[in-house]
Design a binder for these strands. Structure first.
Length: 858
RNA sequence: GGGAGCGUGGCGGAAUUGGCAGACGCAGCGGACUUAAAAUCCGCCUCCUUCGGGAAUGUGGGUUCGAGUCCCACCGCUCCUACCA
């Protein structure tokens, strides 16, 4: 018998498959399509165990789909732009492309050693001009549609490095690389207007029935739709007098979801970044204090805000506004707990109904007026029904944010208040009637800031002309190529690279400057899945007919860390391109599988600093890729965390050896005619063979269903059960499985073939070698039809049922599989007759194929 | 603060969605083969037990003929997100 030697067979089959184009997309329109896609990796060094798990799931599903008769698209590429490449280039005084392409080669070789069935002719690399060219094209088309905007906004700026930093790159107020203090700077940046699609991005989550709920929930929270009202407050002049005839300039609008609490508004707060603030305080006594607070707020970073103890700082501006609902004059403060870019950047503060306002009021000793109470509150009887306004300061432990009854709220006193309450509705109605407010919807989602002052990204195709303004690069001039002769280590940037920055205006032909910002790398990953459908197209990003045939992606697989940004941006791009008439579907990914992290045996994250990183290459070298794949699949459900242990790998290697021997034994038996002497068959031999056959059909049915549900671990467990049954069958003495000459050989062969085919997606080299050399099959095992199964044949003639007495198992009966209920009842009653003697049988419940429960009492 | 999820043997995990808890595997223990070891094969493997049984799916209650699964409360853990008015 030939021994299993993965280190010999794996490279051999990988070479043969590559030479014969085994993994190429067939583009066979006669078959139904299936697009299986795993999120493309960032080329940072070699692959790790997380890649191995992610891409193994995808490969199993792709191979399984092909055997099930689908025309399968299963591509791979690299998300190749980004900061790590630039940093590596600076460190090694080389070019980002060098580092990037070297890593891509390393990773691709590792993927090939894992036996992943990618069509490498469709490889997409994001930093390839033939790819990013079309990213620029999409940018221009979005610009034409009004979805691109340039606008001024405060961004994180490191004066030492001379660049903008992402929020994540600012650590405790300092640059992550040079530790210089980061400033907020107003810079003109490029934005994609994703907020135009906020409502549809939210609504269409309902279509995504194949997505995990938690991902949809996260997206919904991120989009953050909030129904409320805009309320207009009237700004008093610097002497504190309300204008007799307020104009639009005298109005400061706030957004609130709690208009019902308007009577409890005791002060008013502006964000430090509020646009008109410096002008509002000019010449006021508190001017300097306000300006200091504005400066201090600039230094507070997103990281600090998230980690800090939420200590609120504020200053009275000296100005007042008039509350439109009751004409009361309240002081205007500026405080760093109000964010500038949500709502209007101004807030009506109701300390009794909002915890943040409450804390702020306590800190600065501002009045807290109760206007909403629970009915049981001691104050309730005192204030309920009192029409005139009694300003009663209270000192509660916390604000009352739940629903309650409105008190001392003018005509609304006694109504139910809260979010979406009758009280809220009535107040908004009143504001609308007096033309001091209206219903509106706010989204948390912000427009997508896509410009980066970085070299290693996709250049924004725009030109700044002193006479024509900002002009798009004409389509025929695409791609705007990144210059290769740049010395990043010496501090050169696109802006200082004259060969790149200097250009002529496409409109007037005059001297002009090229835009030197590049696009956020998330723009590259927002449409790569479309490029795979037509990767070599040099007249368009893709052919619509091809994209419409393959899309949407039937199964998308990747890490949960992309639950918001990547998936949201991709959904946005898809909808935009649909509206451009390029695509005829609404959502890019039908089914989403978010895999869990791979941790070490102690449940710890693998990291270089901890020294617990497991190298996939070492595992392949020790046990073969097939064992690594199978181990990964067997560890548990794909969406849960997995604890990697080499013991598990060694165990799986043993199993592959054992199953190999079982297949060889089966084929040996199938071919040995001397074993099938019907005349010498022992009693029970037929039953043994039928049991074997039954198990084969049961297991094929289970494995098929399990893979379809992504339950790879239980699919493998079922194959192990079949292995155990088969091993026991093979151990029988010859006479015990002699059944008859016609069926014995074919049965052994059928079991062997079924095992090899079911293992093909899991252990592709192992299966191919057995298919080719032991079963002597035609072609590749990966082109064979998936084994069929007959549910009828999987059924046993007799079933064993548990007999319960009042829910506790007391006995067992064996009945014919098709026995009627009365027969089963009687058999069960007979079985436990001794125990029910003298008791009253109240009820007998029969659960077919499982158990009988007898309810009896004394 | 908000959201999502989880809790089952020494360990990873099963349980057809309300029907015999612990499939399958790892580790461990015993045996066979072997001069010996490795490999392989077979068996045992939740806990307690007076060997009749009894208890058990984080804790306590509830619904049900029947609960790991559904409901309520509590305890513990994980992830995401966050001054969103």
């Amino acid at each position: 018998m030939k021994a299993y030697n993965p280190l010999e067979i794996e490279p051999r089959w990988q070479k043969i498959w590559a030479e014969c184009g085994q993994d190429k997309v067939r583009e066979d329109a006669s078959k139904p399509k299936k697009y299986v896609l795993e999120m493309f990796p960032y080329p940072s060094g070699d692959i790790h165990m997380g890649h191995v798990s992610n891409y193994t799931y995808g490969d199993v599903l792709a191979r399984f789909a092909r055997m099930q008769g689908f025309d399968v698209l299963h591509p791979m590429g690299w998300d190749a732009f980004g900061l790590p490449a630039e940093n590596a280039a600076i460190k090694h005084k080389s070019h980002p492309a060098k580092w990037t392409y070297a890593n891509i080669d390393t990773q691709q070789a590792s993927f090939q050693r894992m036996g992943f069935s990618y069509d490498w002719d469709r490889k997409v690399v994001a930093c390839d001009p033939e790819y990013y060219r079309w990213g620029q094209w999409i940018f221009l088309k979005m610009w034409e549609r009004g979805l691109v905007e340039r606008r001024n906004s405060p961004v994180n700026w490191c004066p030492d490095c001379g660049t903008v930093l992402a929020n994540e790159q600012v650590i405790e107020g300092c640059c992550w690389r040079c530790h210089h203090e980061v400033e907020k700077r107003d810079l003109t940046q490029w934005y994609f207007k994703i907020t135009d699609y906020a409502q549809e991005l939210l609504d269409d989550l309902d279509q995504l029935t194949g997505w995990p709920d938690r991902v949809k929930q996260q997206q919904a929270n991120w989009i953050g739709r909030s129904e409320g009202a805009n309320v207009d407050f009237i700004l008093c002049d610097k002497e504190g007098n309300a204008p007799a005839e307020p104009t639009d300039d005298d109005i400061i609008t706030v957004f609130t979801t709690r208009a019902d609490t308007l009577f409890g508004c005791t002060f008013f707060v502006l964000a430090p970044e509020y646009r008109d603030l410096p002008e509002m305080v000019a010449g006021m006594p508190n001017e300097q204090a306000v300006l200091d607070l504005i400066e201090a707020a600039k230094k507070i970073t997103a990281v600090e805000r998230a980690q800090g103890d939420h200590e609120k700082h504020g200053v009275f501006t000296g100005r007042y506004v008039v509350n439109p609902i009751n004409g009361e004059k309240v002081p205007v403060w500026v405080a760093d707990y109000v964010v500038a870019d949500y709502g209007t950047g101004a807030v009506m503060a109701v300390p009794c109904g909002d915890q943040r306002d409450f804390e702020f009021a306590k800190k600065y000793d501002l009045p807290i007026v109760p206007i909403i109470l629970e009915e049981g509150d001691p104050l309730f009887s005192q204030l309920n029904g009192v029409q005139e306004r009694i300003v009663t300061s209270v000192d509660w432990g916390e604000a009352m944010e739940a629903q309650g009854i409105l008190v001392q709220s003018g005509p609304y006193t006694g109504m139910v208040g809260g979010k979406h309450s009758p009280g809220e509705d009535a107040v908004v109605q009143a504001l609308e009637d007096m033309n001091r407010g209206h219903r509106t919807v706010e989204f948390r989602l912000r427009d997508w800031l896509i410009s980066r002052q970085r070299y290693w990204g996709n250049p924004i195709p725009a030109i700044h002309c002193p006479t024509c303004g900002v002009v798009p690069v004409p389509e025929e001039d695409l791609p705007v190529r990144l210059p290769e002769d740049i010395d990043l280590a010496a501090g050169e940037t696109l802006a200082t690279h004259e060969g790149f920055a200097k250009c002529t205006c496409p409109k007037c032909g005059g001297e002009a400057r090229r835009e030197t910002d590049t696009m956020d790398t998330f723009t590259c990953s927002s449409w790569y899945y479309l490029r795979y459908t037509d990767p070599h197209n040099d007249t368009a990003p893709f052919d619509s007919a091809r994209a419409n045939r393959w899309m949407p992606v039937d199964q998308y697989i990747g890490g949960i860390e992309h639950a918001i940004l990547h998936l949201l941006y991709s959904r946005f791009f898809t909808k935009v391109m649909r509206d451009m008439g390029l695509l005829d579907f609404d959502e890019p990914f039908t089914n989403l599988l978010c895999q869990g992290m791979v941790l070490d045996a102690n449940g710890e994250v693998m990291s270089k600093s901890k020294g617990n990183v497991v190298s996939p290459e070492e595992m392949i070298a020790g046990y073969g890729a097939d064992a690594v794949r199978a181990t990964m699949l067997f560890m548990g459900p794909p969406d849960k965390e997995k604890l990697w242990s080499e013991d598990g790998l060694a165990g799986m290697f043993k199993f592959l050896n054992r199953l190999w021997r079982i297949v060889c034994d089966l084929v040996g038996k199938a071919d040995d005619k001397t074993l099938y002497d019907a005349s010498a068959a022992a009693e029970g031999a037929h039953a043994n063979a039928m049991a074997m056959k039954r198990e084969r059909h049961r297991v094929v049915g289970k494995v098929t269903a399990d893979i379809e549900r992504n339950n790879f671990n239980t699919a493998l467990a079922a194959i192990m059960e079949l292995a155990n049954t088969t091993a026991a069958f093979l151990r029988l003495k010859p006479a015990e499985h002699r059944l008859n000459c016609e069926n014995g050989g074919p049965l052994c062969r059928d079991v062997a073939e079924s095992i090899v085919k079911m293992m093909a997606p899991i252990a592709p080299h192992w299966a191919e070698e057995l298919w080719h050399d032991v079963l002597e099959g035609e072609g590749s095992v990966h082109d064979q039809p998936w084994p069929t199964f007959d549910p009828e044949l999987a059924k046993a003639d007799e079933v064993e049922l548990a007999v319960q007495l009042n829910g506790k198992v007391k006995g067992r009966i064996t009945v014919a599989a098709d026995a009627d209920e009365d027969t089963i009842k009687q058999a069960a009653l007979d079985n436990v007759a001794a125990l029910t003697d003298g008791k009253t049988i109240r009820k007998v419940i029969v659960v077919k194929g499982r158990l009988v429960n007898i309810v009896a009492s004394a």
